[in-house]
Simulated assay, not measured.
Amino acid sequence: MDRIVFRCVMPYICDGEDRKSFSLVCREWYELDYQTRQQLAVQLFYATTLLSRLSKRFPFIKHLKLEGLKYFRALDEPLLDVTVWMKELVTYFDYLENLHLRYVQVEDENLELLAKTRGKQLRRLCLYDCDKLSTDGLKHICHHCINLTTLNLGCDQIIIKDAEWLHELALHNTCLEKLIFSTSQSLKRVNITSKFSTVDLKDFFNSAVLLEDFDGCRHHSAKTEDYAGFKYPPNMKLMEFDGCALKDELGLVIPFAHQLIELDLLI
């Protein structure tokens, strides 16, 4: 009976330290951890083994985090290169769905390899504070990772070569729910074809301080109280939104209405 209970409970224990303690009790519990662990975080600087060995220990990992040292960035030292680990990752982690990379060097070739081997099964990709990352690599991700629901690009060091990666994303991905792009402060024009309410994009408008042209919100489901603290960027010149939202949004538009060149209301 205890064995059955443990097998039912173990998948819901997500804390790494709790699982470590659990697996040290006996051989059976060690094997149970091996069979049910789906999340793994690796500090690359201290890692003494490659992922090929880790995959034998935890073959069913779905959520993987590879993290370098923030200390290197503070000292302006090169971040750890993730190339070797990426080759291991695409070879051995057959169930990978979520990948989180932080404080590492990510070459365009790394993302190309990831996209072409694990692209269709990836659901969430987060790249935080990574170096050597460019839009060429993102183009491969957006072309092959057609089932991504979250793409989080929290990197100030992204090398912007062109906007083709966004075009690839629009052409191939129909599942995306969240796109976070830290260089949104430089955006001046945004067109969204999906059905969003304006307040759903509150955080985006707060960061896109140079935005001038916004075309996109075709769905009004917000309540008046949802607009608390909401404001548009100050340089807006062209806008298009759901006319049903006019009553709630008129007060937000008036402060810069004198500079508007075009205002389209979709009725």
Score class of each variant (00 low, 15 high):
residue 35 Q to R: 15
residue 176 L to E: 05
residue 112 E to D: 08
residue 264 D to M: 12
residue 238 L to R: 15
residue 137 G to A: 02
residue 30 Y to F: 15
residue 167 H to S: 12
residue 183 T to S: 11
residue 79 L to R: 06
residue 35 Q to L: 14
residue 99 L to M: 08
residue 203 D to F: 08
residue 113 L to F: 02
residue 141 I to N: 09
residue 43 Q to K: 14
residue 257 A to I: 13
residue 52 S to Y: 12
residue 156 D to C: 09
residue 56 K to T: 00
residue 31 E to Y: 13
residue 15 D to T: 00
residue 219 H to N: 11
residue 39 Q to F: 10
residue 247 K to R: 12
residue 119 G to R: 06
residue 86 M to S: 09
residue 173 N to T: 07
residue 151 L to C: 04
residue 12 Y to E: 08
residue 99 L to T: 08
residue 36 T to Q: 13
residue 156 D to P: 10
residue 37 R to A: 04
residue 101 L to A: 05
residue 209 V to L: 00
residue 152 N to A: 13
residue 2 D to Y: 14
residue 197 S to I: 03
residue 111 L to K: 05
residue 139 K to G: 11
residue 59 P to V: 03
residue 229 G to E: 04
residue 232 Y to E: 01
residue 118 R to S: 08
residue 141 I to V: 13
residue 225 E to F: 12
residue 62 K to W: 10
residue 166 L to N: 11
residue 80 L to V: 04
residue 187 L to D: 03
residue 138 L to F: 02
residue 35 Q to A: 07
residue 100 H to Y: 15
residue 245 A to W: 06
residue 121 Q to A: 06
residue 211 L to W: 01
residue 104 V to N: 10
residue 37 R to F: 11
residue 177 E to T: 00
residue 13 I to F: 14
residue 199 V to A: 03
residue 128 Y to L: 07
residue 224 T to C: 13
residue 42 V to Y: 08
residue 93 F to H: 10
residue 63 H to S: 12
residue 23 S to T: 04
residue 196 F to L: 15
residue 95 Y to I: 02
residue 261 I to D: 15
residue 118 R to E: 01
residue 230 F to D: 04
residue 31 E to K: 14
residue 218 R to E: 10
residue 174 T to Y: 05
residue 202 K to A: 00
residue 180 I to H: 03
residue 12 Y to M: 07
residue 115 A to K: 03
residue 76 D to F: 12
residue 47 A to C: 10
residue 41 A to Y: 12
residue 134 S to E: 04
residue 196 F to E: 07
residue 48 T to S: 15
residue 112 E to F: 08
residue 11 P to D: 10
residue 255 P to M: 02
residue 106 V to E: 08
residue 243 G to I: 01
residue 1 M to S: 09
residue 241 F to K: 02
residue 112 E to R: 14
residue 185 Q to G: 01
residue 144 H to C: 10
residue 258 H to S: 12
residue 261 I to R: 15
residue 6 F to G: 03
